[in-house]
Design a protein around this nucleic acid. Structure first.
Length: 328
DNA sequence: CACTTGACCTGTCCGC
DNA sequence: TGCGGACAGGTCAAGT
């Protein structure tokens, strides 16, 4: 479920944590998740240092000193978790009684990781007690770990992805803008120069589709997913099935403001953790504590007290207040 | 071309 | 207790 605020939170975390670190080794178990040829990995990733961590829409870009970039999409359940600091060493970490999943057969990736004496424990203690966003991560790697980046200083970056929809690929930095997705994707909604005029203009060509489908369309505006679509539509009091062309001008302007406000708040709260999402330190985001309608069916609308309902719109679970949000 | 639906995956939850 | 099926949603391909 990582949307723009979640990916941005990960980006900020990684920007603090991995710039300057030099890649020593990469282990991965899914050709689909990491399709690059071993020779390319050896030539352009191993021995390179991280020079920048960027984001475009929901895509993370980790730039390397080799002139290549790791392009990463977390899709629904992807996580990028950095583990540094002192590392307890264990000779057979995947066979110790303390291992969380010790009574099953280690995956090939785990077995390989065991060979290099990994077996780290990511605990709340490691990241400091009292942090508002608790850790969701246990020992890494775990069964969802697809790629492990090891840096020369002994720290690690884990790419976990329970549902395997996400991917990592290595390509020349200069070619990143030529990816089909990058050529089609719409403007960044939180950029200062993204105006309400441009917002309205972008939606015009989708006049006949529903406002929710248009919000989720990455070629209209970048980075909006199901959570912030529902939250911003509630904020603007627009029914998700309203055709774009039928949305009153004034409400469109409110939607622009609501979308930006709700995403900025979400970034401030470290994103939304419904089930899987964690930041670069393995911690949950707390926006869901502030959500007004998303996953709140059966609860009262904070504006009018009407019970929030859930139904399907644009192929997605959709949450509205049936009193505040009516078809135009 | 605009728009909708299904596929990709796996873990979880619900009803029987 | 187990099992089948529905469900979760970002993006692309294939369909209308």
């Amino acid at each position: 479920m990582p949307e723009l605020p979640e990916v941005e939170t990960v980006r900020r975390g990684l920007h603090e944590l991995i710039i300057g670190r030099v890649v020593k080794k990469v282990t991965h178990d899914t050709p689909k998740g990491f399709p690059n040829a071993a020779a390319d990995v050896e030539a352009f990733l191993i021995g390179s240092s991280v020079t920048d961590v960027r984001r475009r829409a929901k895509v993370l870009l980790i730039d390397l000193s080799s002139g290549y970039t790791l392009v990463i999409h977390l899709k629904m359940t992807g996580q990028l978790v950095f583990v540094g600091g002192a590392r307890p060493r264990s000779p057979k970490p995947f066979q110790t009684a303390s291992h969380r999943v010790s009574n099953r057969v280690p995956t090939p990736l785990e077995a390989r990781a065991a060979d290099v004496s990994e077996g780290l424990t990511v605990t709340a203690e490691r990241f400091g007690a009292g942090h508002p966003n608790e850790s969701l991560i246990g020992e890494l790697p775990d069964r969802s770990t697809r790629v492990i980046f090891e840096f020369v200083d002994g720290s690690h970056l884990y790419f976990n992805d329970q549902r395997k929809f996400g991917w990592v690929r290595l390509m020349p930095t200069l070619e990143v803008p030529n990816i089909d997705f990058m050529k089609k994707v719409g403007p960044e909604p939180l950029e200062h120069d993204f105006t309400v005029m441009e917002f309205k203009e972008r939606f015009k060509r989708r006049a006949k589709t529903s406002i929710k489908a248009a919000l989720l369309d990455q070629t209209v505006v970048a980075g909006v997913g199901n959570i912030y679509a529902d939250e911003s539509l509630w904020g603007a009091a627009i029914h998700p099935l309203t055709r774009v062309g039928e949305v009153p001008e004034a409400k469109f302007e409110v939607l622009y403001t609501e979308l930006r406000d709700v995403m900025n708040l979400a970034i401030e709260k470290g994103g939304s953790t419904d089930k899987n999402y964690v930041n670069a330190e393995g911690k949950k985001g707390s926006y869901m504590d502030f959500a007004r309608v998303f996953r709140r069916e059966g609860h009262e609308c904070p504006r009018c007290g009407t019970i929030i309902i859930k139904f399907k719109a644009a192929g997605r679970g959709t949450h509205i207040c049936p009193q505040c949000q009516v078809l135009e």
